[in-house]
Structures are given as C-alpha cells and as structure tokens.
Design a protein around this nucleic acid. Structure first.
Length: 436
RNA sequence: GGAGAGAUGGCUGAGUGGUCGAAAGCAACGGUUUGCUAAAUCGUCGUACGUGUCACAGCGUACCGCGGGUUCGAAUCCCGCUCUCUCCGCCA
C-alpha cells in the first residue's frame, strides 16, 4: 500500500511512476484523491457534531447530579437530534473510507528509480552471468525423459492422484528433493545467517492481503473448504509461497530498532492454481500446481533496504554456484515486476535439455508496501515510528532447480553426477541409471 | 468436540453507566541531591486520525480483544465473533 500522504502531496509523480508499470491506475489515483478529500471534509464535520454531543451529554450528567431531572430531559432532545445527524454522516464517512482503502489496496507498488522502464520481459536487462553452457558429447536429454528413465518422478500416477500439474516423486527423485531441501536450509541458516522457521501452509485472508497477493490474485489461490457444501474453513488459503506466512510473522507489531535486521528462511510447499496458464509449458515439472521452495525473508531498516536486496540475491546465487549450475541474473523492468515489488532481480538457471533458462528465484524489495498493509512498524532509536522494508527471495524454488540439476549433470552412461556439496545430503555421488 | 474462566496503556493490575484516556505499582525518560557499580526525590510518560503550525504547541474525534446493539451518555449493560488459560473427551 502506498502512503496516502504521498498521493495527496504529489499525485502527478505517483501517477507517472505507476504508469511505467503499464496498468491503468491513473483513474484510481483520481478516485482516491476524491474519496480522501471528501472523507476529510465529512470527518471534520462529524467530529464537530460529536464534540457538541459530548459536551451536552456531560452537562446532562451534571444536571442529573444536581437533581434537575426536568432540565436534563429537555436537553436530551438536543443530543438525540445530533445523534441522528451523526449517524447519517458516520455512514457516509465509513463508506468513503472503505472505498478509499479498497482502491489503495488495489494499487501496485511504485517502481524504484533504478528500475529500467519497460513493458514486457523482452525489456529486462541481463545484469550478469555465472558459469557457462557446457558442451555435451551427446544430445542432452530433457528432464521428462531423464525422470522417466531413472524413475525419479511418476508423472502419470501423480496426475492420477491429483490431476495434471501434480508430481509424484519416487525413489532417487524423492531423495534428491529431500536432499536439496536440506542442503538449502543448511546453507542459508549456516552460512548466510538466516533463522529457520517452519510456518503454517494455510493462511488467513489478512496474510494474503498483507503481502499483496490479495485482492488482485484471488483466483490464483486454492481456498481450503470444509466440506462438500463448499463452506470455507474460516477463509483459509493454501500458500502460494512461504512469503505469505513468513513475511506476516510480525504483522501488527511494533518492533524495536535493535530487532533489525530480521532474517527468516523457510521451507514450504507452494500451491498455485495457475488459472489461465493451462497448456502453456505445462509438460513436465516446469510449471506445476505444487512445488517445494526455500524462501528467504528480510525485515530491515528502510535505509538498508537496497543493500539488503543485493545481499539477498547473492545468497540465492550461492545455491547455483555450489551446485555448479550456469545462470544469469536479470533485472525485471517496470512492466514485468510483481504487484508489491519496487525492484526485483530474477535468477534464471540454464537447463540444457530445455535449451532455455528457467526462473528459479525472484528477489524483491517491497520497501514499505507490505509493512504498511500489515501494520508492521519499527520504533527507531530516536523514537520515530517507521515502516520497515520487507524483502523476499527464493532460495530457491525446488522443482526447476531439480530440472536444471539433472539436465546439467547428466552423464553419457545415463547416470546423474551429484555436485560435491550435495553428496553428504544424498549420501551418494551419483544417481545410477537402471540399465547402467 | 464438551464445560468453565479470562482479554484494560511497554509490563503488572484497579475500575461505581456520567469530569475515565482510564487508579496504583514497575519499567522508561528528564532534573535535583548524596564522597564512589546504587539509593532518595521531583517531574514527564499511550496510540491513530483530522485540524493547526516553518516546526512545536494547541484544539477535536476515536480507541480498554474484534464487530454490532441499548442509552442523552458505555471500559462498565446486551448480542455475535476471535483468541488465551484450566478441566474433560478424542487424536497424529
């Protein structure tokens, strides 16, 4: 959520920055300004009436105390009339405020000045690459083929259980997934200073709203239902990312400055309805309804938000470096950024079987956008209360990492070589080929 | 799932339908004092929004878990909800 004061003070600037995202939010800004000024006008008015009523009520109390009951009765008429006016005005005030909030919640964050202005992913600049595409003395196989041949994933039975887009990991596949998860958590907690948390995998509507998933992406979330009648279990939603619960851990709190920076690291499965994406790259495990991910969340002093973002990306990059996977880091342009983000780096790993780069991490600084939505503040050492910057980054998504790993490290003999740092976790240095 | 108890300012904890934004204590902050890691003493000490100011101040409104209701007036009475605690049952 943007700062209403900022919208009041420099509406043009806000409109300009929003426009770089490509949406049509100009009209919303207009309506917000209108609701806001109207709201302030009515609030002033209704508060004046309330003040009057309070005064008269006190006088009535005094009269009653003095035993002047009749006089008091007479004055009650006054406040009754005031009460009616107040009721009407309060209704209008409430509606305006609600409408303004609704609009405020639907506005995306303003892109940071350093972000390239652009319309689509074609405009995303590549910032750097690490490693390189290897040459294989054979035609590298795609992950679907590898998974089937090595019996890592049973695509058919996974779909039988839950429909397409759900994976059944088997044997070495399941073990590799578990090893990767463990490896990632140990790396971030041990080397990068994050505190591991294990959050609920369903969250309330408030949490979804806090991180900016709602209201815009309601149709992308699975709602938890209680029974066949469709009654929703207190409006709970399967998390699309651990960011939803973890970024909300301190919702509504007032943190001390000494509590910062806060760094959390969490494993969770992620559930995405991917409505409207059917048929687009749905084969295999590139785009699925459920995948595992290790997420990194930071809550920091606003002064240090961007410094923290650079470190966050570096932490995610370490994963790929340790697994010896070629990747590139790109900066999302204004038109391609997520709803709540002010600046986002994507890390894309090379998958030789796909002959394409896969997004395995998205690291964003949402600045105070989420903190404002969830009412999370920090009391600075000088006593000032500010909204901290909240950052999130994947460290990393598992399914696609799995793809890049097996495609990159496939061997001529049909086996998969396991990079050194992962071996202790898998307790093996290769995944053997059944026929080998 | 059943029964009961509770939810008040950073914390502990009072609170009669009407000067209650809320006693008291602790903590915190500022000052004074005492020949020494501390004590005594005085004072300050909630939040949000609106208004106002260069900025303070000031003024107003709201807030005693959340949402409704009764009333001229609600922390206080009524209803619904949420959460916490205790006991019972059930269960990984």
């Amino acid at each position: 959520m943007l700062d209403i004061k900022r919208i009041r003070e420099e509406p043009e600037r806000v409109r300009e920055r929003l426009a770089t995202r490509g949406g049509d939010d100009g009209e919303k800004v207009e309506e917000i300004l209108h609701c806001d000024s109207e709201w302030r006008r009515l609030v002033t008015e209704v508060e004046r009436l309330k003040s009057q009523r309070n005064r008269v009520s006190k006088e009535i109390g005094a009269l009653m105390g003095q035993g002047k009951g009749e006089e008091a009765e007479a004055r009650k008429e006054e406040t009754r009339a005031l009460g009616e006016q107040i009721g009407v005005l309060d209704g209008q005030v409430g509606k305006l405020k609600e409408r303004a909030r609704e609009l405020m919640l639907s506005l995306p964050n303003l892109p940071h000045e350093s972000v390239t202005v652009g319309a689509t992913e074609a405009d995303n600049p590549t910032l750097r690459e690490w490693g390189q595409k290897r040459d294989y003395p054979f035609e590298p196989e795609g992950h679907v083929g590898l998974c089937e041949r090595l019996q890592l994933i049973d695509f058919v039975r996974g779909a039988k259980l839950s429909g397409s887009g759900f994976l059944l990991y088997t044997g070495w596949g399941a073990r590799l997934e578990r090893a990767l998860t463990q490896f990632l958590l140990d790396l971030h907690t041990g080397e990068h200073g994050y505190t591991e948390v294990s959050p609920p995998f369903v969250v309330s509507r408030d949490c979804m709203e806090g991180v900016g998933q709602f209201p815009k992406f309601v149709d992308q979330a699975y709602a938890v239902q209680e029974g066949e009648d469709g009654s929703t279990l207190g409006s709970l939603y399967l998390i699309p990312t651990a960011e939803a619960p973890v970024a909300n851990i301190h919702r509504g709190e007032m943190l001390a400055h000494a509590d910062l920076p806060i760094r959390y690291c969490a494993y969770s499965p992620c559930f995405r309805a991917e409505a409207g994406a059917a048929g687009v790259g749905t084969r295999g495990m590139i785009r699925v309804h459920q995948f595992d991910k290790v997420e990194l969340i930071k809550v920091v002093d606003p002064e240090q938000g961007y410094e923290a973002l650079e470190r966050l990306v570096a932490h995610a990059e370490t994963v790929l470096q340790q697994l010896d996977l070629h990747y590139r880091v790109i900066l999302l342009c204004t038109g391609d950024m997520g709803f709540g983000s002010a600046k986002t780096y994507d890390i894309e790993v090379w998958a030789p079987g796909q002959k394409d780069y896969l997004e395995v991490s998205s690291c964003s600084n949402c600045e105070d956008f989420q903190a404002r939505r969830m009412g999370l503040r920090v009391k600075m050492t000088d006593g000032k209360k500010v909204y901290p910057h909240i950052l999130n980054g994947s460290g990393t998504a598992l399914a696609r990492l799995f793809v890049a790993l097996i495609e990159t490290h496939q061997q001529k003999d049909g086996s998969i070589a396991i990079p050194e740092p992962l071996r202790p976790y898998l307790k093996a240095d290769r995944i053997p080929s059944p026929e080998g």
